[in-house]
Amino acid sequence: MIGVFRQWLAGLPAYLWGGWGAIASLLLLLAGWEFASQWLDPLALPDPRTVLATLHGLLTEGEAWAELAITGRRALTGFALSLGVGSALGMLAGLSMTASMMARPWVTVLVGTPPIGWLVLAMLWFGASDGTPVFTVFVACFPPIFIGAMQGVRTLDGQLREMAQAFALPPLQRLFDLYLPHVLSYLFPAWITALGVSWKVVVMAELLATADGVGAALAVTRSQLDTAGTLAWIVAVVGALLAVEYLLLEPVKREVERWRTLA
């Protein structure tokens, strides 16, 4: 574990350097925004500098950090629960043909149910507590993770499974040496998708159900017709998501999947 962390640290500068392309493309988007804002009413679309100044103000006053921390806690709690439960149940379902076939329609039902529907249910069950956004995030993140884990197990090479049986691998070794390394290549993309979902859903849940967090702050800017403030919060949330994905998940994925790139 410590080894993985050290490799993560060592690989970080080269990885960040490789991010120039992404940064350039983001700056291009910013330029497009600035261009559009020249033609539109500032109430409809303020220019990026105003928005960034607003965000800077929110951050230096400290208000933004507190709200982001609350939102992040809720999103990551729901995401982590989904990650644990969804990965485990998905892998178990993948082991059995019957379970996979039975689980498929359930997951379709879950995917088809709009998050807003879950949110209303959660508000009835959990009220204004943290439980409402966390539950909504959990339910919204569950299907992609579950399906990723199930697909991963189902696609494991039967010849390798047979080999593991012939060499009498005990259950734990089978999990860590045979199933997990293969399933991870299905799980990582699913986790990244789910992480994005978690941030979107948590803000929506907060907007409607709680008195604090980024969503609640957005409700305030909406009622004050504060477009610059709204965009500032959106930039903050997207920035936090990008940071978690590209500074944490992506480098870990590269390290774990190193065997795949060496050929």
Binding site: Q159, Q173, D177, L178, P181, H182, W259
Partner: peptide, 25 residues
């Protein structure tokens, strides 16, 4: 012990860890 027609090595393990697989078991 068994050997199959295909090598059937674990692609995510080094050759050394592959050889040691049965010993680990």
């Amino acid at each position: 012990a068994c050997m199959f027609q295909q090598p059937r090595l674990l692609p995510w393990k080094s050759a050394l860890d592959n050889i040691a697989l049965g010993l680990k078991a």
